[in-house]
Design a protein around this nucleic acid. Structure first.
Length: 425
DNA sequence: TCTGGGGTCCTAGGACCC
DNA sequence: TCTGGGGTCCTAGGACCC
């Protein structure tokens, strides 16, 4: 048996932990730039606020304080998540961290265990030590555990549901709308409803050939999982990412190349840092930019360009490549609303092929990056960054006074069109 | 009129997840 | 006025190989 455990309204619950006065209040958590709603407490859901609602659509509710809105704080949520996962590990060592707020727990080694009681204990423990309410669903496959979790959340006062017999499977499938099945998204929901499939149970009545033809092998896996046959194995140890992406929607559009280049450089540096964190190097760098897709008055422009690089995790190399790609797709006279950098073709850093042209720099870059990472990690924030990233008011001062009191090191790496400098904490 | 057979690799697009 | 960010997998089709 597997359990799916997830934090109820996770981001909203995290905010609540630190402000108990918010209990029973309608609260929402907003995206980057406070653009849309990305999490809601039950009370906010009851007000009819949907996921993804643009914030401006509920600004009256916020102004009247009927809804309390928070800007997102992902550092906090990540920390809460780690602590929550740690508690899960007290119940079984075999866990798969599936997302920031949920994990699959493998209980197949526990033959004599009272799962229902285990779920209740787990819930109580997380609530006590972390302060986050969780729901626990048990099932013989991950897909059924997901369904059990939904039932736990919706109908069970103790937050725990167990699907462990053929009778319970059938009952659970019949009470689960097709769009609540893990693996069935918007498109397939529409398609299936068109074929008179309303519930998970209806779906399991479809012929395999029909599912295979219209929904690929994944659809078939979902059907088997719903019937109790494991097709989606546990992933106990996270694989290294195959692509890493950093992108932002801008609060204010950017139209000049320089402004955009600074943003792109920041994204590239972030990608580079994430690459180093997981010990990978990238062979491909993609840059994309787009204007406001909601703007009906002006023509929409979106483009991307991918450059091949010698496998690297150096911020310097990646910033340089990203800026080159940007030059190719940048068009003057447009107001850009969103931009991003994607690094892919990732390989383990240790497998990196030495190239004739850059092996001189690899060692230098490596030491520089290590030093920068150490400084930034120990400070907890970005105290060292590249001048190409811009947005650094001290840059001008540092240029004028390389040895000013708040500057302990000033390094101008002209050949990379970038600067590195270190500010005293 | 009629034009082999078998394979790999890569990419874009479309589906899904949180 | 104001609309998120970060991933994965599968498939079809094209390029290319012998």
């Amino acid at each position: 048996m597997y359990a799916l455990v997830d934090g109820n309204n996770f981001y909203a619950s995290c905010e609540r932990v630190f402000n108990p006065a918010l209990r029973h209040k309608a609260i929402v958590v907003l995206s980057n730039n406070d653009g849309i709603i990305i999490a809601r407490s039950n009370e906010a859901k009851a007000l009819g606020i949907k996921m993804g609602t643009p914030t401006f659509e509920i600004k009256d509710l916020i102004a009247r304080q009927e809804v309390i809105a928070f800007s997102s704080n992902f550092a906090l949520y990540g920390d809460m998540s780690r602590r929550m996962m740690h508690i899960f590990e007290d119940f079984t060592p075999d866990i798969e961290v599936y997302s920031i707020d949920e994990a699959f727990l493998d209980f197949s080694g526990f033959k004599q265990i009272d799962l229902k009681q285990t779920g209740i204990d787990l819930r109580r423990k997380v609530l006590k030590y972390i302060g986050i309410p969780v729901s626990v669903g048990f099932g013989p496959t991950k897909t059924l555990a997901k369904i059990a979790n939904r039932i736990a959340k919706k109908y069970m006062k103790n937050g725990v549901a167990l699907i462990d017999t053929p009778e319970k499977i059938e009952k659970a499938l019949k009470m689960t709308p097709i769009d609540d099945v893990w693996g069935i998204g918007r498109r397939y929901t529409r398609f299936l409803q068109h074929h008179q499939v309303q519930t998970a149970w209806d779906f399991t009545r479809l012929p395999d050939a029909f599912i295979r033809k219209n929904m690929s092998v994944n659809g078939l896996r979902t059907k088997q999982e719903l019937l109790g046959t494991v097709c989606i194995p546990m992933a106990y140890h996270p694989e290294p990412r195959k692509a890493i992406r950093t992108a932002r929607t801008f609060a204010q559009t950017k139209s000049s190349y320089d402004e955009l280049a600074e943003a792109i450089s920041t994204f590239a540096a972030t990608c580079a840092r994430k690459l180093r964190e997981q010990g990978s190097a990238a062979n491909l760098v993609t840059v994309f930019i787009r204007t406001n897709k909601f703007d009906k008055k002006n023509p929409y422009y979106a483009n991307n360009f991918t450059l091949q690089v010698n496998a690297t995790s150096s911020s310097i190399n990646l910033i340089k490549a990203a800026k080159t790609a940007l030059q190719i797709i940048f068009k003057k006279g447009l107001n850009y609303k969103k931009a991003g950098v994607l690094v892919s073709g990732l390989i383990p850093e240790t497998h990196r092929q030495l190239s004739l042209f850059d092996d001189q720099n690899i060692v230098k870059h490596k030491r520089l990056m290590q030093t920068i990472d150490q400084l930034n990690n120990s400070a907890g924030v970005s105290v060292v960054k590249f001048a190409a990233e811009g947005n650094f008011p001290l840059l001008q001062a540092a240029k004028k006074h390389p040895a000013s009191s708040n500057t302990i090191c000033w390094y101008n790496a002209k050949q990379y069109q970038s600067y590195v400098y270190v500010i005293k904490k």
